[in-house]
Computed example of a mutant assay.
Amino acid sequence: MAATQILKSEWTKIRSVASTVWTLSLAAVVTIALGILISLLSKNEFDKMPARERLSFDPTFISFAGMTLGQLAMIVFGVLVVGNEYSTGMIRTSLAAVPQRGSFLFSKIAVATGLALVVGMITSFVAFFLGQAMLGPHKAQIGDPGVLRAVIGGGLYMTLIAVFSMGVAAMLRSPMLSLGILMPFFFLISNILGNVSATKKIGRYLPDQAGSKIMQVVTPVDDSTPYGPWGGLAIMVLWVIAALIGGYALLKKRDA
C-alpha cells in the first residue's frame, strides 16, 4: 500500500472514532476555561501578593494554568489513537493490509501528531489571549520578549504530550494499562517528585516538568533549574523519541 493511502486510511480511522475527536475538544475546552478562571483569580489577588511573588509574576504562564488538566485529555487522545485497534482486535486486519509495521505505526502517529499540533496551537493562542484579557492591567503582550516563544511552546507541549502517550500505548498495547500508568505518572508522581526537596533534581528531568519550561517567560526568584526554555523542550523531545523507538521496536518484534 502506498504511503499516501496509508495516511488517508489512518486519517479516516481517527476522524471516524468519536472518542478521539471528543478528547481533543475536551483538551481545548478545559485548558482555555481553566486558564481564563485562574487568570481572573490572579488579577483579583495581585494586590495582596507579597513583593517576592510579584517579582515572579508571569502573566503568560498563568494563562496556561489549565494545561495541567488539559494535558490529561491529550494523553487519552494519544492512547486511544494507538490503543483502540488493540482493544477491538482490528490491529490484525490493519497489519494484514499494511505488512510494513514501521510504515503503519508512523503513518498513524504522523496523522495524529498533525491533528494534535493544530488543536494544541489553536488552544495555546486562544488560552493566551483570553487569559490576558482577564488579567487586565497585569497582562502581557504577544510582542513582549519571550511571549510568542512561550505561546508557540504551549502548542508544542500539548502535541508532545500526545505523541509521548502514543509511544507508550504502542509499547503496552492496552489502552487501560497505558492510561493506568500515564495518568498517575503525570498527575501525581511527577508533581510529588517535583515538589519534594529530596527528589526535585530528578523531577525536573521528567517530560512534563522539563517541557513546561518552554511556556515560562518570567523565571521564578528561587528557580535553580539548570536548563532554559529550549533546553527543557529538548529534554521532553528526547523522552518522546525514546517512547516512539520503544513502541516501534516492540511492534516489529511481537505478534499482533
Rank of each mutant, 00 (worst) to 15 (best):
G78C: 05
A127S: 14
G247T: 01
F185C: 02
F164M: 11
G35I: 04
L7H: 10
G102F: 03
K200F: 08
F57A: 12
S94C: 11
A116W: 07
A2C: 00
N191D: 11
W239V: 07
L179M: 14
G211E: 06
A96W: 02
L72D: 02
S19Y: 01
L24W: 09
A140G: 07
A133M: 13
V82P: 08
G155I: 08
V76R: 09
P220F: 08
L250C: 00
S212T: 11
M236F: 09
L95N: 06
S16C: 02
S42M: 12
D47G: 07
L80N: 10
R52C: 00
Q100S: 13
I181R: 01
S124A: 14
L80F: 15
N191A: 11
G89I: 10
V196S: 01
A210M: 08
T12E: 10
A234E: 05
V196A: 05
V30Q: 07
A256S: 12
A97H: 08
K252M: 11
E85D: 15
A2L: 05
M171C: 03
V221S: 04
S178G: 02
I62P: 02
V240C: 03
Q216V: 01
T31K: 01
A27V: 07
S87R: 14
L26M: 12
V126M: 09
G136V: 12
T93N: 11
T60L: 02
R101P: 02
L41P: 02
A170M: 08
R15L: 10
I245G: 00
S9Y: 08
P99F: 12
S63W: 07
S103D: 14
H138V: 10
T113M: 13
F57T: 12
T159H: 09
A210D: 10
L117W: 12
G228N: 14
S19L: 14
A234D: 07
A242M: 09
M236K: 05
L206K: 04
L95R: 12
V79M: 09
A28E: 04
G211M: 04
R52E: 14
A256V: 14
L206C: 09
Y248T: 00
A242N: 02
S87E: 14
M74H: 03
A150F: 09
V29K: 00
M134W: 03
M166H: 03
S56L: 06
V218K: 10
T123P: 07
T123N: 07
V221A: 06
V118F: 09
L105N: 04
L179T: 06
T93I: 07
V81A: 10
V21H: 04
K200M: 13
M158G: 13
Q100C: 07
Y227T: 08
M166G: 05
N195Y: 03
I181P: 01
M1R: 10
V118I: 15
I75W: 00
I32V: 15
Q5R: 13
P229L: 14
M176P: 00
L193F: 15
V240R: 00
L80H: 13
A116Y: 06
F128Q: 09
P229H: 12
P59L: 07
G89V: 13
S94H: 03
I142Y: 08
L188F: 15
L182M: 11
L250M: 11
M90K: 03
G211Y: 05
V221H: 01
G120R: 02
M74K: 01
G153E: 08
G143Q: 06
V30M: 04
R92I: 09
